[in-house]
């Protein structure tokens, strides 16, 4: 209920302030188990992807985010869990951390429940509008759930509108390019390089205005 209300507001703000140019929206999975994999430039990324989903499906769509950031205080944790629907992942293991628990366990459980995960395998927003290497976590999920399609989504412009470290939202039209779904073929290195290639191809679909 709270989540729906929140995303209705977000949806209006996203459509009015930003404006989205979505290509191949029909390829976005609305039924799980499925994994949406996107590049990460801004806090807006999750908001925009959630805003593209039908409201009735929101409760089954789970962004995966860093536990150290989104669950750092009780208030943040409550918001992250109940409004944003985030699944926390421990980014780095400090010494002495309990290694018996797989950091991806929450993701396995959610996929087992038939949820749609939203994953940002760059691991961090980093420098806006620049892609970095992808972390391999997604391949473990795909291996465990080979029937779940992995859908790459390339976004451009969100890092211009709200880059890391800024609180001032400056309106820009944003591009959202959805790619064809991939499935696990049995080889981790192959899977990751295929995913990287998909992103490279999606990012070349349009010549973006320079932004230095």
């Amino acid at each position: 209920m709270l989540q729906k209300a929140f995303y209705i507001v977000i949806r209006i703000a996203v459509l009015f302030l930003l404006g989205l140019n979505v290509r191949r929206k029909e390829l976005l999975p609305v039924k799980g188990p499925a994994i949406i994999v996107a590049n990460h430039n801004s806090h807006l990324d999750t908001m925009v992807l959630m805003a593209l989903m039908p409201l009735s499906r929101l409760k089954d769509i789970k962004p995966v985010a860093a536990a150290d950031y989104f669950f750092s205080s009780p208030a943040k944790a409550w918001l992250s869990e109940h409004v944003l629907g985030i699944i926390p992942v421990e980014r780095r293991r400090k010494d002495g951390h309990d290694r018996s628990k797989d950091p991806l366990q929450g993701c396995y459980d959610a996929l087992g429940d038939g949820k749609v995960l939203i994953l940002f395998p760059e691991g961090s927003r980093g420098e806006p509008e620049q892609m970095t290497d992808l972390k391999k976590g997604v391949s473990y999920l795909a291996e465990r759930f080979p029937q779940a399609p992995v859908v790459p989504v390339f976004t451009h412009g969100l890092g211009k509108a709200l880059p890391r470290g800024s609180f001032l939202l400056v309106p820009f039209f944003c591009d959202i390019f959805v790619g064809e779904p991939m499935t696990w073929e049995g080889n981790r290195i192959q899977f990751m390089s295929a995913l990287q290639d998909r992103f490279a191809a999606l990012s070349k679909e349009k010549t973006f205005a320079p932004w230095e």
């Binding site: 404006g19 806006p128 412009g157 211009k160 880059p163 800024s166 001032l168 400056v170 309106p171 820009f172 039209f173 205005a209 320079p210 932004w211 230095e212």
Partner: peptide, 26 residues
């Protein structure tokens, strides 16, 4: 005007440093 200006700013080269300036223009 807002939509047109947003379209214009989205298609021209802009500087990251000028984010605030763009905001004033809006």
């Amino acid at each position: 005007s807002f939509l047109a200006l947003k379209e214009y700013f989205s298609m021209i080269p802009t500087r990251r440093a000028d984010r605030r300036v763009l905001f004033w223009a809006y």
